[in-house]
Design a protein around this nucleic acid. Sequence first.
DNA 1: CCATGGTCACTTTTT
DNA 2: GTGACCATGG
Length: 824
Amino acid sequence: MSEQDFDEQNAFEAASGISLSAQAMAARSASDTSYLEGLNPPQLEAVKTMNGPVLMLAGAGTGKTKALTARIAHLVRTGHARPNEILAVTFTNKAAREMKNRVGASIGVAVAPLPWLGTFHSICVKILRRHVELAGLKPNFTILDTDDQIRLLKQIIRAENIDEKRFPPRLLAGYIDSWKNRALTPEMVPSSEASVYDRRGTEFYALYQARLLTLNAVDFGDLLLHVVRIFQTHSDVLAQYQRWFKYILVDEYQDTNVAQYLWLRLLASEHKNICCVGDDDQSIYGWRGAEVGNILKFEKDFPGAKVIRLEQNYRSTPHILAAASGVIENNENRLGKTLWTAETEGEKVRLIGHWDGDEEARWIGEEIEAYQRGTRGLDPVPLDGMAILVRASFLMRSLEDRFLSIGIPYRVIGGPRFYERLEIRDAMAYFRVVVSPDDGLAFERIVNTPKRGLGDKAQQMINNVARQNGVSLLEASRIIVDEKLLPARACNSLGKLVANFDRWRSLLTAPASISVDEQGEDFDVIDEDIKVVGKSHENSSPELTHVELAEIILDESGYTAHWKNDKSPDAAGRLENLKELVKALEEFENFQGFLEHISLVMDNASDDAGEKVSIMTLHAAKGLEFPCVFLPGWEEGLFPSQRTLDESGLKGVEEERRLAYVGITRAEELCTISFVANRRIYNQWQNALPSQFIDELPPEHVDVLTPPGLHGGSFGSAAPRKFDGIMRGSALEGRAEKADVYNSPGWKRMQSRTKRPHSNPSVARNAVDAEVVSFGLGDRVFHQKFGYGAVIEVDGDKLSVAFEKAGQKKVVASYVTGAGEVPF
DNA sequence: CCATGGTCACTTTTT
DNA sequence: GTGACCATGG
């Protein structure tokens, strides 16, 4: 099958004319190098060094996307590669879209379809679809999202009589994900991690994988894992792709995990024309398996690599840049770059403390209105030039409340996604069962939605029959109906459902065996060919588009009626969403492509136009920029997040610091950092100290604002005095010896906090109680100062630990935390 | 079989 | 405060 594909690919090369036009274009416009205009020398070098490995270290705001797109344009224009011989991977769909647009703008959309530009995951799906059988899957496999994943794990766990309270499915999901991030199949998981999850982690991992295969499904991690495994075990397949991808470009290289790294290395080993772009200071996805190490060791992995640093910043004012540098300098593990700017003007970074979160929100609201009008001699800033970046999404609520009450239009970026909504997932479950009957998870979801009188009893029966006969839930249902294994009422109901699915499937025009994604311009030529073949099959089918079929399904299943009869206030909105879903379906040629798009690509429809302030998390803000940025919630325990500190210690602090760096560098002109003395978390008031990162801001670039008592707000007399104390203790004093981080108040606070974890019961409970269980020999532990190590002797509450970096030490048990039950 | 009410745990960050 | 989950009663 794959051979055939490549024949088609070759046939295409010869016949399609695109390659000709590309060459013609290269010849015609070889002199047209407008895309090179405005590039600075290092950027130019990054564009023109086409052969061999290149590492582009691009600091925030240094024009890396510009360089990257120019590089693609240059490769095509100079005839080094046809667009479909370039593999360009990004992490987000947004980045992929932007790059596609920008390349299109510089060399023309029509001639540069760039079929292999996309996210790691979408490209992997594309590859996997062409070699499904090598992964033991059927062509119409489904992609499970996190929700389905947890659901499935829960089933497995329940069947094995595990205490769900002590070992929640989420925890297991975390381990499995992290194994997959490292490209480890169950048998490859090192024995040192065997004790995980009641010592049955890998066992469950294997069970889970087996279940996935019978469901003909994959999860996100599998997309990469399967492809890597195929490459590793089928050198002929690998060789074909190696030959095909003459040039490889990788965006945000600092975010790659081990599996992605292996994937890239396998693909690049033939031509070795790999260009990775990244910034170690912006690595903020370590918790998700990203390995900063990948970027740090690039030169070793690709000998002879050319390293190019982009250090001129075109985004921010000198004060903002200096503030960001001042913070990030406190990290030890970095390649080191010195950002500079030709700008000279600009406002200092502003710092302000507030009494509580509501006060902070109120103040930000006022500032936004002031900026919008134009204040203190500044030009007015439009609302969509302003953004509020928070560490955790629960901080958004007080802001939203405030903005709603004073009427500031805002948009939340990265909230709950469209396809995560209940009604969308339900509807999609129907489609899934129609498209791939083996998808038991989808079937389970909608057997009784809307209510069909098929409750626990009936569902148990279906499950049992399925297991006994080794068939799908749908088939099991058929058996139950035939043999009348349930009460007549239930059988009747179930029979109707099964009949419905049969009929719907018969109405499905595109044969299920044609497994091609149908994403319009995302298509690659090979798929185009197959599509034509598919079309010829269709002619015998009755004329009925998948859109019409979708309407029929939602209608006949009673699902639409279910919401129409629902009297709850949001029912109308849900019906709207369903309409939108059907409308979105029009853009695709069949269900398959649509389902794939939904699970992989569909991001928030946040592009509702209009002048609005943006609210988002710091993570969501990476890659964006705004004239005016607010950074609230800089408090110890929140930012840096206590949880990260507990889980990852010093390494975690550094990642949080990079997050701070990302936040500050989003700002072009104006940047305001704030913190509060009292924060309400879970409806509980907690007093908070300013973040240690505030201590790290260089005072000469910071304006400390007067606490808002003077603005005429309603304050108790004690409040401003209290801020005063906090401010002096953190931002104003403490600056004497800037280099000495360890003497800064923030550091001391952190130390005392970690040494006496019980001092903060509500936060510490989880971490501490888990650790009360005494350590055993060989346990992997983390110590705040010595790092990771293994327990080699236990003497009461004293442990001898062999630390990886610091050697053997005796420590008190309460000073270390277990590193085994924590997702690494 | 289904609806209701009470309890609990929970909040990072996402392809 | 909220949402998920479970136990109870109709």
